[in-house]
Structures are given as C-alpha cells and as structure tokens.
Write a protein that binds this DNA or RNA. Structure first.
Lengths: 201, 201
DNA sequence: CTCGATGGGTGTACGGCGTACACCTAGACC
DNA sequence: GGTCTAGGTGTACGCCGTACACCCATCGAG
C-alpha cells in the first residue's frame, strides 16, 4: 500500500501512480479518501524510518544523534521534506518524532518553556529561505568560478563566497558545500546555545 | 504589472488572475513567459521591500535588524516565504538581500568561510520541518487543552508542552506561541554563537 | 445452495489548470 | 498610406483531482 514510495518521483501523481500500479486512477480512491491522505500516508512511512528507540547518555549527543538520524531518513527521500512542510497538520509519525525529541530535552533537565523555545529554534528557518536556496547540483568549478566573476559587480560578497567555494572544489575533493558539515555546524551551534542557556537559566 | 500582489491569494492563479484584471488568460503571456516567471516577478517585488540601505554600527545589531526587516516583509505577504522556497534558483532581489547580509558579516570581521557557515546556519531548518509546523491558527485554549489531554497517552511530552501553552494563553494576553519572540530567540542564539566562534576562531 | 452484502476495480464525465498557436487590432513611425 | 509591432483574443490540447454509477468476485448466513 504505502509501498507507493516506488519510482521515487514527486511532482507526479495519482493518475500516474495508478498506471504505475497497472490500475485505473479511480481504484486508488478505494484505499484513500483523497490525494492529501495518500501523501500523509507515504510521509508517515518515511518518517517512521527514523529510529526512535530510547538511548542512554547525555542529552546533547543523544538528541544530536536522533536529529541526524531524521536527516538521514529525509535525505533518503528528497521529496519528503518538501511534502512534510506543505502539510498543514503533522502526521502521527511526525508527532511521534517531535515528541521523542521533546522527551529527550525534558529528560536532559530542560524546563517546558526552554524546550518550547528550543523546538521552535530548531524548526525555524531564520532567513526565511531554506538551505537548499541554491540547488547544489554539482556544476563544474570553472563554470561556477566564471559565473561568480560575472556577478562580482552586482553582488560582490556573494561572488566572493562563490569564488571561495569554487576554489575549494578544485583543491579538496568533494563538493563545494559539504551539506552534512553545514547541517551539523548549525545544529551544534544551537545545541551549544541551549546548553549555555540552561546553565545560565 | 507586478501590482499583481493584489487579492493576496496564493493557491489561485493565471486564469484567475487574468479575470481579476478583466482580461483573457493568454494576454498575460504577452508580459511573462510562463507562470514561474510571473511568480519570480512578484517575489522580487516583495523581497525588494526589504530595506537594504547601509547602516552604521556593530555588526550584530545591524544584521539582526536587517533580518528582522526581512521577516517583516515576508510576514506582510504570508504566501511569499513558501513561494520563495519552492523556487529552484533565487531571484535577483533575493540575491541582493543575501549579498547585503554577507556583506554585513564581512564588514564585521568575519572570514569568508565563517560567513559561509553562518549563512547556511541561518538558512537551514534543522528539524527539516518548518516553524509553522502547527498552524498557529488561534483556537480557544480550552479546546486546545482538551486536545492535549487526549494525546497525553500517546505523545506525553508534546501534550505537556501543549498544556503549558494553553495555560499561558489563558493567563497572559496574546497568543500562546509568540512567534516574534521565538524567531528572535533562535536568531539571537545563532548570532551569539557566531560571535563566540569568531572570538575563538 | 442460494442470497445478499461488501471490498475492490472500471468507465465516463466535469471543471480546473498551464499554455501552444493563429488571429486581430490600435497606435507609432517612416 | 503603409508597415511594424505591442498587446489583447479565441480555440484547443493534455494534464490534473475526483464525483458518480456500475460491475464482479468472494464469503458468511440462512
């Protein structure tokens, strides 16, 4: 049923998925009320991949690990994070995940208010634009460098950063922005911040 | 043209917008190549509302102010942030905004790498779910409290937090989650983190 | 063994979407 | 007056989600 995770496509749906299953579109409606419900379903199966089994240890590494696990699950299904955000009310599995995170904070000695703020901080996108603002499709560094030079006049600082990235790409192996690193960087920054607040508070 | 900011609706478009302008749908295509280009257009007009005029002062309050200004602009047009995120490449105005932020960091003494990480941190949604995970449509506290109790069994920690929020709503005026406060909380946490890194760095 | 109910698949149809293509018109400019 | 062109028009196509009516195979009750 929710094995509809299949062909891994996102923007395409319902009629398409039906034919993919060798069935007429309307047949799907015998299993789900509408498309949203179907999406809720597959979202839940993805989120359920996150390992929520209790772990012993200090709150910080434990929470860190769980969030990174969630990230891994979402990375396995690139369309998922977008789908989750588009939903107006969270699905049960999402609730369960959130609940587990909150529980870890509470067990770590945080007060309810503190956790509340922490959850918001972890969930908010400060710039209002998401991390994937630039699609990090790996273009070759030289083209990137050229583009950077081209916009040096209008967007000097952006260009500077882009050049640095292009440079790194040519010297070190791997793609310019190490997304994983960036993610952990921001995560640790926040976790450290929470810790300081707790000690201070 | 981009005065299409009009009726403030989002999910509806093109044909709809055409009739709204008293014109046949295809007429729009004499001004924009396709719907995406139109969206890019209105996104740019929204983002252009952000005041990017140079400001004197310490980097932290200046950046803080600019980001909060951006937030105000996006809050004025609730559909905008979603639209921006959905776009694959940023529009010029978005680039200009990013550039200005990067510039402020650089002027504040940050190195290129540091700024790079900072930008990523500011832009990422750590949980993978956005802040508006729960639509904060103001429901009455009692109903909320009841719902919280109902899920206390399955999601104890979530319920605990929800109860606290419901309680606050009844005692203090204003809505339970002060979004503005939460936003500034996360923002300051990150800014403080950046500062410490720079001093350590 | 018949019979009704029921779960799942089918076919047709509607209204909405974005947009390709060919056409028309009113002014601007030589 | 003749040409060019920017902008508006009409028709049509293929996609989408889904409402509604139908059909059939299985199965438990009588």
């Amino acid at each position: 049923m929710a094995l509809a995770d299949e062909a891994g496509l996102d923007g395409l749906s319902m009629r398409r998925l039906a034919t993919e299953l060798g069935v007429v579109p309307m047949a799907l409606y015998k299993h789900v009320a509408n498309k949203d419900e179907l999406l809720d379903g597959i979202i839940d199966t993805v989120v359920s991949e996150i390992d929520l089994t209790p772990v012993e240890g200090d709150w910080k590494p434990v929470i860190r690990g769980r969030i990174l696990a969630a990230r891994q699950a979402l990375l396995r299904h690139p369309w998922a994070s977008g789908a989750i955000e588009a939903r107006r009310n969270p699905t049960p599995a999402v609730m369960a995940y959130l609940d587990s995170i909150i529980g870890l904070f509470r067990a770590g000695g945080f007060g309810v208010d503190e956790v509340h703020h922490a959850i918001h901080a972890l969930g908010s996108r400060i710039l209002g634009f998401s991390q994937e603002l630039f699609d990090d499709t790996p273009t070759d560094p030289d083209a990137q460098e050229q583009a950077a030079h081209a916009m040096a006049g209008t967007f000097p600082w952006l260009a500077e950063m882009a050049l640095q990235v292009a440079h790194d790409e040519k010297t070190v192996v791997g793609s310019g922005c190490d997304d994983q690193f960036e993610f952990e960087f921001a995560l640790d920054l926040l976790l450290d911040g929470f810790e300081r607040l707790r000690k201070a508070g």
